[in-house]
C-alpha cells in the first residue's frame, strides 16, 4: 500500500465522518480531522455511530475499489473498539482489512 493510498484512506474516513454527522445532533457531531478521537474515552463516537461509520466507509471503499471490504470483523466488539479509537487507528484497520482482501488498485 502506497502513502498515496494511505492518505486516500484517511480522506475517505473523513468523508464518511461527514456523512455520519448529517444524522447527528449538533452537540454530538464528530470533528472532521485526522487527529480526531472516535471511540476512545475522549471521543464522541457511540456504538450506533460506529455501525453507521462502518457502513459509510464500506460503501466508499466499494465505490473506490469496486470490491467488498468487510470492516466489521463479524461484530467482534473488542477488535472494533480498538480499531475505532481514533481516525488513525481506524485508517490502519481499513488498510489491514483491504490488504487482507487485496482490493486496492495497484496504481492510483
Amino acid at each position: 500500500m502506497s502513502s498515496l493510498q494511505s492518505a486516500r484512506v484517511i480522506s475517505l474516513i473523513l468523508a464518511a465522518i461527514e456523512d455520519l454527522n448529517l444524522q447527528l445532533p449538533p452537540e454530538r457531531k464528530i470533528p472532521v480531522s485526522p487527529d480526531t478521537n472516535l471511540a476512545s474515552p475522549e471521543g464522541l463516537l457511540d456504538s450506533m455511530g460506529m455501525v453507521i461509520l462502518i457502513s459509510c466507509i464500506e460503501d466508499r471503499l466499494r465505490e473506490w475499489t469496486g470490491a467488498e471490504v468487510i470492516l466489521s470483523n463479524e461484530g467482534d466488539a473488542t477488535v472494533l473498539s480498538q480499531a475505532f479509537r481514533t481516525v488513525r487507528t481506524l485508517a490502519a484497520h481499513v488498510v489491514h482489512c483491504a490488504n487482507s482482501t487485496r482490493v486496492f488498485p495497484d496504481k492510483e
Binding site: 456523512d19 453507521i52 466489521s72
Partner: peptide, 18 residues
C-alpha cells in the same frame, strides 16, 4: 444495491440503507 445494508441491520437493527 443500497436499499438494504447487512452491516446496518445485523449490527444496528437499522432497517434500510442510509
Amino acid at each position: 444495491a443500497r436499499a438494504y445494508d447487512s452491516t446496518l441491520w445485523y449490527m444496528g437493527k437499522v432497517g434500510f440503507g442510509l
